[in-house]
Amino acid sequence: MDQDKGDKGEDPRDCARDALSGDRWTAFMGWALKTVIALIAIGAAAASIPYWERADFPVTSLIIYVAGMVFIAMPLCLYYESLLKAHEDSRVPHPS
């Protein structure tokens, strides 16, 4: 009578497969976030090249860097953080 402890209709292999695909997606998003941050930094540095020989401040470089970090990297970072939090919550056993 008390033999069925798991959720009915849920195969443990499906849960493991979902966890593995979730881990892959989280790792991919971490890699994507780091890549985007590097590309923004490289773009900002490339925009500042014409200003290296002059005393002018490279405003274009600053705009590229700040806008890229605020509007592109920050949402990716928040999404990545939510993925990590979801994985942490799913791995912690809930008291029954």
Rank of each mutant, 00 (worst) to 15 (best):
L33T: 02
M29N: 02
A19D: 06
P93D: 05
D7C: 13
T35Q: 12
L84A: 06
L78A: 15
G9M: 02
L62Q: 07
D89W: 10
D89G: 09
A86Q: 12
Y65G: 06
D4N: 12
G68E: 02
C15V: 10
W25S: 11
D18M: 03
K34M: 09
P50K: 08
L62K: 01
R54L: 13
M74V: 11
V70T: 15
D89M: 10
L76A: 06
D2E: 11
L33F: 03
G6S: 13
G6R: 12
E81R: 13
R54C: 14
G22R: 01
I72R: 01
I72M: 12
H87V: 04
M74L: 15
S96Q: 13
W52I: 15
Q3T: 14
A45K: 08
V66E: 05
V36H: 10
A16I: 09
R24M: 12
L33P: 01
L62T: 06
D14L: 04
S61Y: 08
R24D: 10
E10S: 10
L20F: 09
E81W: 14
L84Y: 00
A45S: 13
A16Y: 07
P12N: 03
M29I: 05
C77M: 11
R17V: 13
S48A: 15
A44L: 00
V66K: 00
D18N: 04
A46W: 10
G68R: 02
A38T: 08
R91N: 11
P12F: 02
F28W: 15
M69Q: 13
K5W: 13
D23P: 00
S21M: 14
A73D: 07
A27T: 09
V92S: 10
D2I: 11
C15K: 09
W52A: 14
D7A: 15
A45Y: 09
F57S: 04
D2M: 10
I64Q: 05
A47G: 03
C15T: 11
P50L: 05
P12T: 01
M29H: 05
G6I: 07
S21V: 15
M29K: 06
V66W: 01
K5I: 15
